[in-house]
Simulated scan of single mutants.
Amino acid sequence: MEIPVFTLDAFTNLPFRGNPAAVCPLMHELNDDLYQKIAAEMNLSETAFITRINHADNFTTGSRFRLRWFTPTTEVNLCGHATLASAAVLFQHKNNVNPTLVFETKSGDLAITKKGEGYVMDFPLNPPTRQDPNEFRDIIKAAVGNHPIQEVYLCSNLKKLLIRLADSCDTSVLTQLKVDPVALESSERSGGIRAVIITIKGSPDCQPGYDFYSRNFAPWVGIAEDPVTGSAHTVLGSYWSEKLGKKKMLAYQCSSRGGELELEVRDDGRINIAGQTITVLQGMIKL
């Protein structure tokens, strides 16, 4: 059996930046064990599998597909960059004729529309709730050390903990953080947290005018640091929209690879996340 595979860097228009995702468009479903083995072999933060819902469709004419995402160790319920990459594969490599594609996922229907040089994803908004930092003392210590924090929020349905650094910290504090994934994972064993988002207020008056910066760590699902994380921005977008009093924001995830996301919080409880992609690899998995 031969399975086509593409690797795309998402939330960037430059190779070797943004977040790489592997995408496999499949004519038939595979078993979960094989999905997981392929994702482990690809060894990227996510591998996405696209399958047809209506077998009369093909990847060029169909407008609805099933989409699943796997890290090297587990399946996840929501992934932004691999969704962006999956849409790009269908639009760019399969020459899909539709202006909008819809993926049926574990997080409901996700629509992706062409926009200029990139794509806009219609995602659920995931508002976090404020927490007492003392209840997360160990995980905060493992994540940010002795740096001062402004506040701590938790998105319980995605199990993402948001730690906002104090406004007295500049961007270099965030970019220079050295987070030990083993220590971070060991600091939280309840199962209630699967990722830690560390964020800081931006400087929209300075070019290119980022409203906020972030980094994302998820050793609990086999990802020491995720380079650019769409799902985290469903939480960050909600949080910063309220704090800044803005619906439209420009965000930068300042991992070593880095990536830019355009966000628009909508009144219907959804968020638009826009970004670009670039293909860096195309080939076949032979089984």
Score class of each variant (00 low, 15 high):
residue 240 W to G: 05
residue 212 F to G: 08
residue 1 M to G: 13
residue 278 I to F: 09
residue 188 E to W: 10
residue 210 Y to T: 10
residue 125 L to T: 04
residue 78 L to E: 11
residue 140 I to V: 03
residue 75 E to A: 13
residue 200 I to P: 03
residue 128 P to R: 14
residue 176 Q to K: 13
residue 43 N to F: 11
residue 36 Q to M: 09
residue 267 D to I: 02
residue 270 R to S: 15
residue 51 T to G: 10
residue 287 L to C: 11
residue 211 D to I: 00
residue 21 A to R: 07
residue 132 D to P: 08
residue 78 L to M: 12
residue 67 L to W: 07
residue 210 Y to C: 07
residue 35 Y to E: 03
residue 64 R to F: 06
residue 52 R to I: 10
residue 126 N to K: 14
residue 145 G to M: 02
residue 217 F to Y: 06
residue 6 F to V: 06
residue 179 V to I: 11
residue 29 E to Y: 13
residue 200 I to E: 09
residue 172 S to Y: 13
residue 241 S to R: 00
residue 82 A to R: 00
residue 214 S to T: 06
residue 21 A to Y: 08
residue 144 V to Q: 06
residue 200 I to F: 06
residue 174 L to Q: 01
residue 45 S to P: 04
residue 261 L to M: 09
residue 67 L to M: 07
residue 286 K to H: 12
residue 29 E to D: 09
residue 18 G to H: 03
residue 173 V to E: 02
residue 279 T to D: 14
residue 54 N to R: 14
residue 166 A to S: 14
residue 230 G to V: 12
residue 239 Y to I: 00
residue 72 P to W: 07
residue 85 A to P: 05
residue 251 A to W: 09
residue 219 P to Q: 09
residue 54 N to E: 09
residue 66 R to G: 14
residue 159 K to M: 01
residue 181 P to F: 04
residue 146 N to L: 11
residue 50 I to P: 07
residue 257 R to S: 04
residue 262 E to C: 12
residue 149 I to S: 14
residue 127 P to S: 10
residue 186 S to L: 14
residue 271 I to V: 12
residue 108 G to T: 05
residue 13 N to S: 12
residue 75 E to F: 05
residue 74 T to E: 12
residue 238 S to K: 03
residue 95 N to L: 13
residue 244 L to P: 04
residue 275 G to K: 06
residue 57 D to E: 12
residue 133 P to L: 06
residue 279 T to W: 01
residue 234 T to Q: 05
residue 201 K to P: 02
residue 42 M to V: 09
residue 171 T to R: 15
residue 157 N to G: 00
residue 120 V to A: 09
residue 81 H to Y: 01
residue 242 E to K: 10
residue 198 I to G: 06
residue 106 K to Q: 14
residue 195 A to E: 14
residue 184 L to A: 11
residue 98 N to I: 08
residue 6 F to W: 03
residue 158 L to C: 07
residue 196 V to K: 11
residue 31 N to A: 12
residue 235 V to R: 08
residue 203 S to Q: 06
residue 199 T to G: 01
residue 66 R to Q: 11
residue 172 S to L: 11
residue 233 H to L: 02
residue 114 K to D: 15
residue 74 T to S: 13
residue 284 M to E: 12
residue 267 D to A: 00
residue 34 L to I: 11
residue 41 E to S: 10
residue 146 N to F: 01
residue 178 K to A: 11
residue 236 L to P: 02
residue 178 K to W: 01
residue 235 V to K: 05
residue 193 I to K: 00
residue 252 Y to C: 13
residue 205 D to W: 04
residue 64 R to K: 12
residue 280 V to T: 08
residue 259 G to E: 00
residue 37 K to Q: 14
residue 80 G to C: 07
residue 259 G to N: 03
residue 266 R to K: 15
residue 47 T to P: 03
residue 255 S to A: 06
residue 96 N to C: 13
residue 104 E to K: 13
residue 113 T to Y: 04
residue 254 C to K: 09
residue 27 M to N: 15
residue 103 F to C: 08
residue 130 R to L: 15
residue 10 A to N: 05
residue 274 A to L: 04
residue 234 T to G: 12
residue 76 V to R: 02
residue 244 L to R: 05
residue 45 S to W: 00
residue 15 P to A: 01
residue 38 I to D: 14
residue 234 T to K: 07
residue 215 R to V: 04
residue 103 F to L: 13
residue 225 E to Q: 08
residue 152 V to G: 07
residue 223 I to S: 01
residue 171 T to V: 10
residue 131 Q to G: 06
residue 36 Q to L: 03
residue 98 N to Y: 00
residue 160 K to M: 13
residue 107 S to L: 11
residue 181 P to Y: 03
residue 261 L to P: 02
